[in-house]
Design a binder for these strands. Structure first.
Length: 493
RNA sequence: GGCGCAUUCGUCUAGCGGCCUAGGACACCGCCCUCUCAAGGCGGAGAUCACGGGUUCGAAUCCCGUAUGCGCUACCA
């Protein structure tokens, strides 16, 4: 038997920003498609008119693009099985629903939402499993006509079998069985003529020739509904693989409460797409017992459904930060600078003149490359390179086992030897300053610490000589003179 | 409540009957390097493999229960 070509889909509903869990599902679909030389299809499930958010589709697509997930068919990428918005495929669903009604596998239900709500409340109060009581399941023609005459709106419900069981073999979990009597007479077509997820996904997955449905674990219990639908419609179901969920630190379903959950937020905080892809891929999938840093190409080459785990994974922000740092360190300076630029433009103090000098930015990047875990941290790590006036407490100038006068003396001596004409290169600075410390009877660290504060305003900063070289002679001398002034205003002990 | 899924270091995971006195990574601790902070190197601590029964010469790995967690239980996806 010929294997059907792999065709998988990512089917988000445009109800807001794409969640990292959702994106992880997209990623697994994409990786599987690319690995198998198959097709990756994006289908927008906009069947809930009330919850649809304008602009959400754009954000979803942007997110996929940002992460490098390209699609073969989807919005603005016409294929042979479009349209790729469910709201434009209403006819297909209507036809399918009517076919089921005609077959006797579905029926019109005229119950009001009020009645349904009441019914459910009663069931819950009576500790009964909530579910539709099938009142409209066996309506006579007269009763039905009466409802129609009264102008009652109807939905179409699937007529679930009363007995037997439905079994399927999940690619990841193996055999899963449900008793049919536990399956409700679920709605397939809503009163507004839109389908529910169950009908729409079945119809579309079939029409779009989807071979594997890779979706989140929370869908596992509605899979029998889908199977029942396939059977009634006389269609061959695809293979199902239910992916483990992504949890917050408290092990509950990841949500806004847990901080960043939308993928765009990670982009805005300065995570690199490669790092994000790598990290997300490892949430539920593994290459082997020791590899953590895996580029996208390797991911595609080695991805397989067999190595997807079954257990829900906690989204571990600290590991993401570490991994993002690894990727930042792997960038060349040009690339890093280009990526850092928007963050600098955005977060540097308003007093800093824009646009920034790109060459200058390039000269400071090597100093923070191994210190930044996200691009968003870069402005905070480098602002003293850009602002004209640094601000700090004069006491910071006085290092360990030093006092005001010793510090003042050290500063003045440094000034004196640096003011001499000559290059201000890293090596030059070192060969000037190191002996000077000794001459002053100070440890190198003591002198350097004082100078670090004088020149950056910080006790924690990149290496001193490199920093001074990038800052330049004029600026350094100026800041050191200011330091002398600041310190002079401090009272001597 | 019903149904379903899951259960290996704090976290992500390796493990698909003997290689496991359970391996790697993040985080943590110590040492080295060092002008601070990082990065890097080395080392450490950390999992009676949820629990209880089986099966087997042998189980983290197979089976059955129990517990716990999570998901679904909408005219939401």
């Amino acid at each position: 038997m010929m294997e059907a070509p792999v065709r998988v889909r990512y089917a988000p509903s445009p109800t807001g920003y794409p969640h990292v869990g959702n994106i992880r599902t997209a990623l697994f679909n994409w990786l599987f498609a690319r690995h198998s030389n198959g097709k990756f299809i994006v289908r927008i499930e906009d069947t809930d008119t009330a919850r649809t958010v304008p602009g959400a589709v754009e954000t979803i697509l942007e997110s996929l693009e940002w992460l490098g997930m390209d699609w073969d068919e989807g919005p603005d990428k016409a294929g042979d099985y479009g349209p790729y918005f469910q709201s434009r495929r209403i006819e297909f669903y209507r036809l399918a629903a009517e076919k089921l009604v005609k077959k006797g596998d579905a029926y019109h239900c005229y119950c009001s939402s009020e009645r349904l709500e009441e019914m459910r409340a009663g069931q819950v109060a009576a500790k009964m499993p909530p579910g539709y009581d099938r009142r409209c399941r066996d309506l006579t023609d007269e009763e039905r006509q009466a409802c129609i005459a009264k102008g009652r709106k109807s939905v179409i419900r699937f007529k679930g079998p009363k007995g037997g069981e439905t079994t399927f073999s999940d690619v990841i979990r193996g055999e899963v069985t449900f008793e049919n009597r536990t399956i409700d007479d679920f709605v397939i077509l809503k009163a507004d003529g839109f389908p529910t997820y169950h009908l729409a996904s079945v119809v579309d997955d079939n029409k779009m020739l989807i071979s594997h449905v890779l979706r989140a674990e929370e869908w596992i219990s509605s899979t029998p509904k889908h199977l029942l639908l396939y059977r009634s419609l006389g269609l061959e179901p695809p293979l199902f693989a239910h992916l483990p969920m992504i949890l917050g630190p408290d092990r509950s379903k990841l949500s806004k409460r847990h901080g960043a959950v939308s993928i765009t937020q990670y982009r805005d905080e300065g995570y690199l797409p490669q790092a994000m892809v790598n990290f997300l891929a490892l949430l539920g999938w593994s290459l082997d017992d020791k590899t953590d840093i895996i580029d996208t190409e390797t991911l595609v080459k080695n991805f397989s459904l067999e190595r997807i785990g079954k257990t829900a994974a906690v989204f571990n922000r600290e590991k993401l930060d570490w991994m993002n740092g690894v990727y930042i360190r792997s960038l060349d300076i040009e690339d890093l600078s280009t990526r850092a630029l928007p963050f600098l433009e955005k977060d540097l103090p308003g007093s800093v003149e824009r646009p920034l000098d790109f060459e200058y930015v390039k000269s400071v990047m090597p100093l923070i490359q191994e210190r930044a875990r996200t691009l968003g941290e870069i402005p905070g790590l480098t602002y003293f390179f850009f602002i004209s006036e640094i601000d700090y407490e004069p006491e910071l100038l006085i290092g360990k086992k030093m006092n005001r006068d010793i510090t003042l003396q050290a500063l003045k001596a440094s000034l004196e030897s640096l003011e001499k004409p000559g290059s201000f290169s890293r090596d030059e600075l070192e060969s000037c300053l190191r002996p000077l410390a000794e001459k002053l009877g100070l440890k190198a660290g003591q002198l350097f610490g004082t100078l670090r504060v004088a020149v950056t305003g910080l006790t924690v900063a990149p290496p001193l000589f490199e920093t001074m070289a990038v800052l330049g002679k004029d600026k350094c001398l100026e800041r050191m003179r200011k330091a002398v002034l600041k310190l002079s205003s401090v009272e001597s002990e």
